Simulated scan of single mutants.
Amino acid sequence: MTEPNTLLYYLKRSTEFLEKKGIANPRVDAEWLLSDLLNLPRIKLYSQFEMPLSPKEIETYRERIVERSKKRPVAYITGKKGFHKFDFFVNEHTLIPRPETEELVDWFFKNSKTFFSEIPNPNLLDLCTGSGCIAVSLSRLIPEAEIWATDLSPEALEVAKKNDEEVTPPGTKPIHFLESDLFEQLESGLKFHAILSNPPYIPLEEKKEIMEDVLNFEPHMALFVDDFKKFHLSLLTGAFSHLETGGILALETHPDFADWILEEGKKIGFLAGEIKKDSSNKQRFVVLNR
């Protein structure tokens, strides 16, 4: 008996295979991998169930499903991840952009006119930029801004530069990329009106609690810190010295440490601050005013 070659047939078989392998959302992942392969919006798959797949499409789809069954993240298989209305290139040198980071960008952009009401060309810094999702999104959303982006990983910076070239339209101010361990390579006199950051913030002792998809594939340098407090004290001190008076620091962080960051920031000299919760009601963001 000849095996069917329809979209629906392979979607069902792939879902069943991923489910047996313990993948958390087998149908969703199977759909994302197929929609990307066919260059179709995921919702469009439902109107194309009887569409025949070519032998090459079937072969490639099978390869993708096998990769996902080994817990490799969908974003690394497709090479991209949607973030704030744009598709960003990602690979194993960068974290996969998360919804929480998108919330940080959304909040900052919605309040940017208030922050910079008297500053026509604000200086912004994306610290620990990774894929560049924060810096590149802000370059689209606040085109008048002068944006800097730093990362310790040269490989991550190459990804960020690629995203800047592909996502940012011609004529937009170029982002200044710099390889740096936090603020080390920034000139001491360089000041910013705002610093945003999604730095590594998972304590090493929590490694055992991390999903295989993350632990076995995403860069540990961007995830884990040996000493959370020492690292973040260095970050807070550097941010304080590189912020203009009236500037703000907006950090994504570990919910268990948000209160500590707020208090330490005030000890360093930040005038005010607040903790903001993410959509899961966790204390995910700390905002400090210089």
Rank of each mutant, 00 (worst) to 15 (best):
D126Y: 04
E158W: 00
K173E: 03
F177Q: 02
V90S: 10
F192T: 00
F108T: 00
F183P: 04
G132S: 05
L190R: 04
L141E: 14
I77D: 03
I96F: 12
K81V: 10
T94Q: 00
K113A: 11
L190F: 03
G130C: 09
N111T: 13
L125W: 05
P143S: 10
F88K: 04
P122A: 06
S188N: 08
E144W: 10
K113Y: 09
F116K: 06
V105H: 03
N111Q: 15
P122K: 07
T114D: 12
F109H: 13
I77G: 07
G132K: 01
E165H: 14
N163R: 04
V159A: 06
P174S: 13
F89Q: 02
E103A: 09
F86P: 01
K162R: 11
E179W: 05
E165Q: 15
E92G: 05
N91R: 12
K191P: 02
I134E: 00
E146C: 12
P154F: 07
A145P: 06
F89E: 05
L182W: 12
R140A: 05
T168R: 07
L104I: 13
E103Y: 04
P143C: 09
T78P: 08
I175G: 00
P143R: 00
K113M: 08
Y76N: 05
F108P: 02
N91D: 14
I77F: 07
E187A: 13
F192N: 02
N121W: 09
H93C: 07
W107I: 14
P97M: 02
T101L: 03
E102V: 00
G82Y: 15
L178D: 03
P97N: 06
P120H: 08
A145D: 09
D106G: 10
D151C: 04
D181Q: 12
T168D: 01
G82H: 14
I134W: 00
K85E: 10
H84E: 00
D106S: 12
I77S: 06
F88C: 10
A160P: 06
A156W: 10
P143M: 04
A135L: 05
I142W: 09
V136A: 08
F183C: 09
P120T: 14
L152S: 14
L95N: 02
E144M: 12
E165S: 13
V136M: 01
Y76M: 13
F88T: 02
A149H: 01
G79E: 04
D87P: 10
S153E: 12
L124V: 09
P120Y: 02
L124P: 10
E187R: 08
F89N: 08
K85I: 00
F86S: 12
A135S: 08
D181G: 11
V159H: 01
R98S: 05
L127D: 12
D106A: 13
T172I: 02
K80V: 07
Q185W: 00
S153P: 10
